[in-house]
Design a protein around this nucleic acid. Sequence first.
DNA 1: CATGAATGAGATTTCATTCAT
DNA 2: TATGAATGAAATCTCATTCAT
Lengths: 205, 205, 205, 205
Amino acid sequence: MSPRRRDAEGTAAARAERRAELLATAAEVFASQGYAATTVRKVADAAGILGGSLYYHFDSKESMADEILSTFLDEMWAAYDRVLAAGLGARETLEALVVESFRSIDRHRPAVVVYQNESKHLATSERFHYLLESRRRFEEMWLALLDRGIEEGAFRPDLDRSLVYRFIRDTVWVAATWYQTGGRLSAEEIAKQYLAMVLEGIQAS
Amino acid sequence: MSPRRRDAEGTAAARAERRAELLATAAEVFASQGYAATTVRKVADAAGILGGSLYYHFDSKESMADEILSTFLDEMWAAYDRVLAAGLGARETLEALVVESFRSIDRHRPAVVVYQNESKHLATSERFHYLLESRRRFEEMWLALLDRGIEEGAFRPDLDRSLVYRFIRDTVWVAATWYQTGGRLSAEEIAKQYLAMVLEGIQAS
Amino acid sequence: MSPRRRDAEGTAAARAERRAELLATAAEVFASQGYAATTVRKVADAAGILGGSLYYHFDSKESMADEILSTFLDEMWAAYDRVLAAGLGARETLEALVVESFRSIDRHRPAVVVYQNESKHLATSERFHYLLESRRRFEEMWLALLDRGIEEGAFRPDLDRSLVYRFIRDTVWVAATWYQTGGRLSAEEIAKQYLAMVLEGIQAS
Amino acid sequence: MSPRRRDAEGTAAARAERRAELLATAAEVFASQGYAATTVRKVADAAGILGGSLYYHFDSKESMADEILSTFLDEMWAAYDRVLAAGLGARETLEALVVESFRSIDRHRPAVVVYQNESKHLATSERFHYLLESRRRFEEMWLALLDRGIEEGAFRPDLDRSLVYRFIRDTVWVAATWYQTGGRLSAEEIAKQYLAMVLEGIQAS
DNA sequence: CATGAATGAGATTTCATTCAT
DNA sequence: TATGAATGAAATCTCATTCAT
């Protein structure tokens, strides 16, 4: 390996690392202040550089959001696909999906918050159509799972399936707004209690 | 009633009505596009007037958000206070609160959406400190209710009370993001099914 | 005189009176806040009516300024012309002019302040060219008087005449900015002391 | 001195210089058109940049006025304080103060004009309270000097001290409105003649 | 890699003015 | 005469983006 080549790799890796750092910062700020209300300058301030300097790394503010969201969704779907491929029963699948969701929140909290708050507006632009795609796949997956669970006798048949779908979807993801990495409860512990509530309800039996 | 008095009342009422109309429009647009991403011009367009004309009725974009949110919160708390004053058992109180929440969503959907999406950011400004106050009272009320329910043997004692609180809070209010007035399910019907899920869970028994 | 005619005169007189009232109010506000910084609404507020209502009486904000200034200037020049026509010596003429100037301030303080502060900017517009005209006549009159005074041996010949002119001009008129009608010193008293200072100086002799 | 340090100083100095340039331009425009009547765009045009670009250097139009005025006042008071510290007699102190005032006008003419025309209105805002403070110190200083002069037998005792104070104050500062740097008369020459008029009067002796 | 100055489009807000009632 | 709602132009200010250094 020539020194030249080592250098090139070194800078490429360094550059990728810097991007990741900056994206993490941007996601944090987008999550806490809202994408539209966040100025590029605020992101740069949080990163300790000047506004214009961000444009060495990224084409635009939008492309930062894009990279934040697509990275998160790719990882999330990879996890979901592993669960779906495992051939579990409906109830076990539901449990595994919820656990994976909380793991996603644990690893990508700011990205999840941005997704929750902004995907609806962003999706109106061509570039973010994959958000709609993801949402559609998500709904499809859950409705199928709920139907299967009712067939298998695992889930109650007397509830409106759309309502149950939205109930679970919102219930899980909205947790990103208050979840703190390294907080009192671990992602797994939260998942366990959420599953208890969702499956068994909160009333004393 | 003298003509003079009728006149004065007439114009005062007319003005209040116009304000209410414009606020309803503004809430709709804030809810669908996000407060920060909504320009004053968009609100004005939706109301069929010019941007500057809004300033005859309101001091600023912020004061519109203020009036939208405080009107909604006042009404919501009035309803909650009626429930709390009724002296019901913990479980019945919970049911009544959830029903009232969905009624609030039914009557003030756009305001609720704005509250959900923007209150966190807005609350950083002095003017919107009442949002924090409301949030605190809300949490207090629910934690007390949950504790009472556990004492009364109505609710399971094995769940983390903070988690249950957030679960119910988010689960109910996030429904505003998809609820449609006059949709397939009425507010009462949705409340009933939500209560079934929250109290009894979704698994077959 | 028919009742019809009496009515017409009555309303015409009433209208003129109302105009005068409103102009006095406007002059006060223009003087205290500055013409450009004064909104039509501020004038209307001070008059106890709504902004739009002023347009029943006046064509525009500019026409209010116009009427305020031209009324004042007309009166001032009438007084000056009386003095100039009296055929006094240079020193007596100077004294009489200064006294008349302070009387003008006494009667038209707000108008004088507006004149001091705004005439320079207003004069750029065609409509206010008479301000330049007045200023030119004013300078001419004073320079001639100073020259005559030096010839007559009344005034010192060792001073720059332009400088003396500006000294007197500014010195007198700027008093409008602090003069209060009905204050501790009457216009005549102030004129007397000003003349003492201007003519004899402030040093002990 | 390391290159790093030279750089840092270079840019800091360059920035300060640019600010000063822009402020000089702004002061010129404020002085000639009036603060309220001057648009930010006019200032920018005069500086050869776009309106928005000014906001890279200054927070607001108001902050430009602030910096213009406070810079001028600081320098003026420094000069006055040097005079006051010199322990001169009342008459010599008066002469020195008048000379310094004309020097201030010579160096900061636009700022002085802005001060004359706008300080009254600006001072109503909290931010410009130092203008009132300066005005109060100014009056205090002059009244004390006049009293001392009368005691020392240098000034006439038969004049109203408030009136004399205002006479001198206005007389000197209003000169900024017509003074031209590099005009026919130097600041020192004007000061000399003004002092002659103020001290000895304009009448032949 | 980053800076600092600027651009230019567009946002919020202001305000003189109009006009139906 | 006055009101109240609106207009529309222009003002202040913001901000994503560019670019020479």
